[in-house]
């Protein structure tokens, strides 16, 4: 009996150690991603005036459309939070529901972004036109690529959740995913402000 308790103690502490390492590691990764975006923001800031005879931000940005897109992403961050609360309560059905809602909202955001891109390209405003458009497509597109990665990750998590209970490993991965998703939200707020709001003024 006492041996069993002892093994349990080792098991729990090992799990805690792993959690602490993974969380710090993921935070560090998010910081590196933040520097990556900082480089792209800096590039955009330097090049956004170089329209080379092409359109400027004022000519092509549709603010109400982008506002809806932004709201969708912000709400998806909120639903991720709800999924996390449900996970803490070990309510698997609720977790699944909110994760699926998050996924749908994320997909809607991505589809809206791609629609915007395709409109721009079909209007002849592709990234080959000017340095401004290159840096615009790259900054916004890199964020979109992150959203796509998040959706892929979310799909894996949802599939896992259908098959198994909320184990400590799964709980850790849910936490990391929510960190990632909130991080993308913060970056989007930066993009909305710097690219769209300041560009449309």
């Amino acid at each position: 009996m006492s041996k069993h308790v002892d093994e349990m103690a080792i098991e729990i502490s090992h799990e805690e150690v792993v959690n602490a390492k993974v969380t710090l590691g993921f935070w560090t990764y998010l910081m590196t991603d933040c520097v990556l975006f900082a480089s792209l923001f800096a590039t955009y800031a330097v090049l956004h005036g170089n329209t080379f005879g092409g359109p400027s931000g004022k000519d092509i940005f549709d603010l109400p459309y982008i506002f809806v897109e932004t709201m969708i992403l912000l709400v998806s961050s909120f639903t991720t939070g709800l999924a996390m609360i449900a996970a803490r309560k070990n309510n698997k059905d609720q977790v699944l529901t909110w994760l699926i809602v998050t996924g749908l909202l994320g997909a809607a955001f991505l589809i809206m972004e791609l629609t915007e891109f395709s409109h721009l390209i079909s209007d002849g405003h592709s990234w080959t036109v000017s340095a401004f458009l290159s840096s615009y497509f790259t900054l916004v597109g890199t964020h979109g690529l992150h959203i796509l990665t998040g959706l892929l990750w979310l799909t894996v998590l949802i599939t896992k959740l259908f098959r198994q209970d909320i184990t400590s490993t799964l709980m850790r991965r849910l936490t990391l995913f929510s960190m990632f998703w909130h991080f993308l939200d913060v970056i989007w707020v930066g993009i909305f402000t710097v690219v769209y709001l300041m560009g449309a003024l």
Binding site: T43, V46, L47, N50, T51, F52, W127, T128, V129, S130, A131, F132, S134, S135, F137, T138
Partner: peptide
């Protein structure tokens, strides 16, 4: 991106720097 997709970040034309 400049080289494969024809973007203009650092090119001598297209407003690149």
């Amino acid at each position: 991106l400049d080289r494969t997709l024809g973007m203009h970040f650092f090119t001598a034309n297209g407003g690149g720097d």
